[in-house]
Design a binder for these strands. Sequence first.
DNA 1: TCCCGAGATGAATCTCATA
DNA 2: GTATGAGATTCATCTCGGG
Lengths: 377, 377
Amino acid sequence: MAFQRNGAALAARIDAPSLPLDTILLGDCIAELEKLPAASVDLVFADPPYNLQLQGDLRRPDQSLVDAVDDAWDQFESFQAYDAFTRAWLLAVRRVLKPTGTLWVIGSYHNIFRVGASLQDLGYWILNDVVWRKTNPMPNFRGRRFTNAHETMIWASRGADAKGYTFNYEALKAGNEDLQPRSDWLFPICSGAERLKGLDGRKAHPTQKPEALLARVLLSASKPGDVVLDPFFGSGTTGAVAKRLGRHFIGVERDRDYAAAATARIAAVVPESEESIAQAPAKREAARVAFATVVERGLVPPGTRLTDERGRHEAIVRADGTLGFGAVIGSIHRIGAIVQGREACNGWTFWHVAEGRTLKPIDAFRDVIRAEGALAG
Amino acid sequence: MAFQRNGAALAARIDAPSLPLDTILLGDCIAELEKLPAASVDLVFADPPYNLQLQGDLRRPDQSLVDAVDDAWDQFESFQAYDAFTRAWLLAVRRVLKPTGTLWVIGSYHNIFRVGASLQDLGYWILNDVVWRKTNPMPNFRGRRFTNAHETMIWASRGADAKGYTFNYEALKAGNEDLQPRSDWLFPICSGAERLKGLDGRKAHPTQKPEALLARVLLSASKPGDVVLDPFFGSGTTGAVAKRLGRHFIGVERDRDYAAAATARIAAVVPESEESIAQAPAKREAARVAFATVVERGLVPPGTRLTDERGRHEAIVRADGTLGFGAVIGSIHRIGAIVQGREACNGWTFWHVAEGRTLKPIDAFRDVIRAEGALAG
DNA sequence: TCCCGAGATGAATCTCATA
DNA sequence: GTATGAGATTCATCTCGGG
């Protein structure tokens, strides 16, 4: 994997001749990191084990079994053991980071609080926490919690006094309809053709991250020719995106199969042209607005009487954003369907609020909220 | 602040006569919590300080380049103090929480990782982390980081084995376009008329939370008449929303001015009508009806042929309310599972009776009996 | 070739009353 | 305490096969 066409890449090589650029180091992450020269890496992206503590099987409503992450590498005896592991790799990473370098770590509520506290303890300085909102998370099948629809990334510098880290503010802003880049990002999970498959046709790695996520990270906090280290390389998303975007990568992975899959994957990546690397546009989606939000904002207060356009049917707005029709309670759509004796109904256009002598569809209140939420890609 | 019109509220008073319901306790949060009876509170919402007296300590005193180890040690000392404070109030809260009670904590990246790690260490069991995305966050003026556009809430039960916590799944789903509620919420920050002002016209409290956010929390994880405790009461948003939604509150606040402002604020709150607050009974809470009862009433006579929705499988109703599938006899659920070769099955929704040309799920007959029971009760 | 429906699947700490 | 069994529970997206 050569980047000779890139002047910055050549310079990096001369500065740090012993860096194993664009290669995967097969072995334990801490041992391998200790072989690298100090202060040699511009950016670290780490996707450590999450320490999920899963109890039994989980089945979907159709009784099919959820393919859980039950791999040995995600098993820890205790929080203490997990913390010790976390501190060890965070320290090893800190040594190889340049003074201007920054670290990204991704995790879920199972581990991210421990990681965050540990990195603060070790002197890292948090610049942001960034939320990856998933457009298509796995649902909560038992209806006993909120759908776990996001993961958290922590972006940190080596210390409070670390200056000169890379943040491509202007480019990010230009790519975000001239709005400042925010700490909440929206991406689909990795699936379809992008998802690496084994010979058996099954996913090659249980937790492969989407390339779009890594692209946003690298475009935010690194420059072309920079060295990006991933101590938990896995299926090699960091390497694939780094190659595509003209960055160097160093991966550490202890599983031989993952490393082999990543090598083949990265070999197939075609780097973008230098001109196109400057920018990555952000796509915007129409926001879905819940009626509960309309109620919570006080745009349609609880107790309000809704009617259809002709005033034939009516229902009462409840505090939780449902409607009450006599003793029956349900969504604006359900109740709309019930009062008409139909299978389905678009509650947004069916239900109206009296405003003076006229009736206003509740759909109108959505626009108010959408106007606010337009900021939030 | 009386809730005499509410039967549940009266009962709560009788059950726990020493609970200072709907009042603000002026004093140190830990000392005040220790005066409350154990296992007496249904829900805790906590918005703890993250700068406290520690702010100077949390930051590096000078910008000089110090040895990294010394640097880490300095920070560890001050983080340690914050952690001690955090553990103390988390422990005090844990004592007053009912076994079925849950805790919400809100914070930003400055403190939330420490809070999350501490509460895991103390045995709390995280149910979700929930992200409050702000429609209108304060911009990042220097353009050196992402706009900090969210805060994080942690929702936790007392322990991994704590069952029976309140989660109003069906109501939340009905209020969200009939989609299950997600872990990312979108609300504006508290501003305008909702923002409490002092006599000088300036904001009365620096971190007043929006009522819509608290409303979502209370509607998600509490029932009418529940006791909601806020150990860092501040401007009293928790109390105002609790009163509006027919929940009791207990606030602890050590600042006399904040407590006074909160008292006045809450006195002006008009509770919602009982109808708009009353909860629809969740399906899992509905009265159980045995299939034998359905058969005994003749709603589905013995000998009836049941099929699945597609007519692929069939079974015969027996007089005792079991099903026969060839020589195999069992409950509607067991036989439903067996004919499909599955572990489990909800026989109520799986099995259908022919009615004219259409198929009707046997679940429909349960409603008939429940309706009778409602009349009797 | 295109359309449609059925099936599969994703970092998941996923029940509860009764005996 | 534990064991048992009733019965409640999913959204967006991609793949594949048949018409």
